[in-house]
Design a protein around this nucleic acid. Structure first.
Lengths: 221, 221
DNA sequence: CGCCGCCTTGAGAATATTCAAGCATCGTGG
DNA sequence: CCACGATGCTTGAATATTCTCAAGGCGGCG
């Protein structure tokens, strides 16, 4: 996958830097569209690039040797991902659906942050925000029941991608399960239980209407 | 607790800045010793201070309304904690045993990082490292069995605080359970199972000798 | 229209929890 | 020095939640 990038890179002055929002020469620029299920980067590859989602959705995850998978985060338009502190990516990223991203070269961004404190601060804020989300996620996985996790997931999706009380899920049940530390069956059962009890409406399996946001919020704790 | 700090603050030039290791005027300085079980800061308090452990051990955690607790991290000598991106602490911190910490004033550190890119970078690196740990922790809570979690915990403690293959745990079984997303009974059973199978020796309940580090490592996956 | 993949549903099994009791360990005071 | 109580740890039995395995259904796409 990495080998593909250099060919697609163009110094498009129309694209803003994924991190600091400035035009070149802040960060070398490019943008690229990934197909659904296409790998963006893999764990262990050199962390050369930083990304910002323009449209679509991305999952960042870790695979264990035996095939178990934990999704660390979903990313939606506006979100930056691929910021690594080490030389290599420590996780993998894939497009969930057709996804367009802006791409910045890490060496350039790193150099910029060494000279400009505002850029360095932005870098820190992005990482701090990722840490805040990871911490909330941690509590969910460590101390919450399946119901609480699914409720929390719906509320989070609503807040980040929803309009009104409607959520269109780009990801499969497997993705949701691997994000919540559950199985697809438990996710499915819980969603359908929520529908039976009138908490949500589920006209299609990836289309959710939150009928009682307040209660869902309370359930998420 | 916060009200206590100003009284104990002294501009001791002998104490290095918790974050950047430079002497004043990098960050206003103080140090303080907390008793075992004493609160260092509480969730929701203004995040005025940043800390570095000198000796002892600290737990950082979140409490849910109904008393469930998730420990996000343990901190040992050399570790920095209390770095917040928002105005208030989003978690609580307590000393596990008698613990000495160095204290820096966040406003001063923030100002320093706005002028000095090296300091800003250090701040980022600290947060990125915290994120890396949280991500590993996340996989543990989401996708690993009790045995794998306990094995992983022992290996981590050995690496961070142990000498040779010996680990002296400063924290109780409850702390371990709340870190691993388990109950004290499960932690206790698992540790004693490890002893029965010869993986560890447990002469006292907080004193562990890793008899087969290699296998423990493999179990942690 | 039919196939394939994803989602749902059910039954049985497993892991971890809950509840309960007993046992060390440590500090205190007689 | 030993008895005592408190706290934390261990162990057992029963329970619960979630997982696994299996089958069936729905929907989208060719």
């Amino acid at each position: 996958m990495l080998a593909v990038f250099p060919e697609t890179v163009r110094t498009a002055s129309a694209v803003a830097c994924p991190v600091c929002d400035l035009q070149s020469p802040c960060v070398a620029q490019a943008s690229k569209t990934f197909d659904a299920e296409e790998e963006i980067y893999g764990e262990g590859e050199p962390a050369e690039w930083v990304f910002r989602v323009v449209s679509g959705a991305v999952r960042v995850f870790t695979m264990l040797d035996d095939g178990r998978r934990q999704i660390h985060a979903f990313h939606f338009p506006g979100d930056v991902f691929g910021l690594e502190n080490g030389a290599d990516y420590s996780q993998s990223a894939e497009a969930i659906c057709e996804t367009r991203v802006e791409i910045g070269r890490w060496t350039v961004l790193d150099a910029a942050s060494a000279q400009d404190c505002q850029t360095a601060r932005k870098l820190w804020l992005l990482t701090a925000e990722a840490l805040r989300r990871a911490s909330e996620h941690l509590v969910m996985l460590g101390r919450k029941t399946a119901r609480e996790r699914v409720a929390g997931f719906l509320v989070e999706m609503q807040r980040r991608t929803g309009r009104q009380n409607v959520v269109d899920l780009p990801m499969s049940r497997i993705d949701i399960a691997d994000y919540l530390g559950l199985t697809i069956e438990t996710v499915s059962r819980t969603l359908n239980e929520f529908q039976r009890t009138g908490l949500i409406d589920l006209p299609r399996c990836r289309h959710v209407r939150l009928c009682n946001s307040r209660l869902l919020d309370a359930m998420a704790a």
